[in-house]
Design a protein around this nucleic acid. Sequence first.
RNA 1: GGGGAAGUAGCUCAGAUGGUUAGAGCGCUGGUCUGUGGAACCAGAGGUCGUGGGUUCGACCCCCACCUUCCCUACCA
Length: 469
Amino acid sequence: MKPRILKGFRDYLPMEMATRERIVDVLRDVFTKFGYLPLETPALEYEETLFGELGVDANKQIYRFRDLENNDIGLRFDLTVSLARVVAQYRNELVFPFRRWQIGKVWRYDKPKKGRLREFTQFDADIVGIDSVAADVEIIELLYDSFLRMGVEDFVIRINNRKLLSFLISFLEIKDEPIRVFRVLDKLEKVGRKPVKNELMGLEKKQAFDSAFETDAAMTLSEEQADLLLDFTGIEGNFNAVEEMLCDYFSVGTDCTECPGLREVFETLSFLRAREMNEKHLKWDLSLARGLDYYTGTVFEVILADKSAYGSVAGGGRYDNLVERFSNSRLPGVGVAVGIDRLIMALNSDKAGTPEPRDAVFIPFFERDLVAQYAKLAAELREKGIVAEIYPSCDASLGKQLKYADRAGFPLALIIGGNELARGIVNIKRLWTDFDAADKEIDAARGDIMDAVKSELFRFRKFKDSQRQ
RNA sequence: GGGGAAGUAGCUCAGAUGGUUAGAGCGCUGGUCUGUGGAACCAGAGGUCGUGGGUUCGACCCCCACCUUCCCUACCA
């Protein structure tokens, strides 16, 4: 049988796991420090739990099957719907505001391509039970912190608010379905102003309107409406500039009360400014709408400026009605999902082929009779928290064992043969240095071996860091 | 979902207008070298040429279908 893997699914080999774990560690650490609690839920849910708020397109992408007891089951599409279920189900046991993070695989029956898989891992974090945009801003701040800590250079968090867009649409007396208008606007950055304007006015019928809407009738904005709408989405700049231009556009002050959406935006901006984040990573983008139907207020996404072809590597927003599907209690929420696999692919750091150098020590099984020596040395190292591996056979030549150690990415080999044993020393071989490096191997007294290994590993780590630049 | 391109060794690819037994580089395995990894040299393994059908005396090459992958587009993480 040929070994095969499902389309849109992938394996992660050991050497590809290093960056993955680094990224997950950062996210887990940052969110935990802000008080978020871990949660885990099943990968399978009843179909009826999954269906509904996602939107027509998304519902079609749910993996589903009927089990042997005739239940209609689906694989989770994201982690947010399961969170809503959990929050509703345990609402009397949980403490609100409830902050939680969760990492897990999700499945979408979509057409796979570069940066998009059918099975992928999301890191998801949410705050449930709070209305205030202070919560929205906290999530954004956490994203900002996380990406900085991961060492990602060119990330940009785009932010907008759906209430503002809805307000604008009624303000301009536009009759078309708001979500449809959002989606057309959403591609402004990609295709430019002219095509978008034509599409809004129904001059250019996009065949792309296939599945998402029952109707693919042309849109009906007047030229004046389209222009005003596009002028509006053209508003950009730093937070102060955006605020000023919004006041101008609607002829209001920042204390305006007639439009909740607008006031929410002003409040969000003021909270954002209070966080002292570098604005080069943040962009209020009035064309951003996001595709999922359940978002009701703030929406945001993270893109990597130089890797925009991969799409967003994280996305989220406020969903005030999601929990109401399961419970009468009103539990608004805001959250974000980070696409771990896509992030790794976009960072292009999952280079296969060479194993990531490890902080690990290799002990050749050199002489059959010295097996107790090797075992003891390895045990001492592990006791000190150092990964130590003994070659699992004494039949291979020393050269062959060292070749293995080299290819497996060990920086150090600790060699003990008859000579070393007699002299009470250990021969330390630096496998990470260049071929013709001066001191490729050094001897350390058996009694000093722990300190010697530690300083050798330190030296290696320093070298590795300098390589990273 | 819509449009385009391509599938030959583990990887990157050669293979004139159809003609015996399908090649290279890298990688892999072994040896030169049972007390020292990367280099060099030598040898070896590895292919139903994506799959199935058709045209032909004869197909890796031409035709059709399917499968898979990649690019553009729509959408998402």
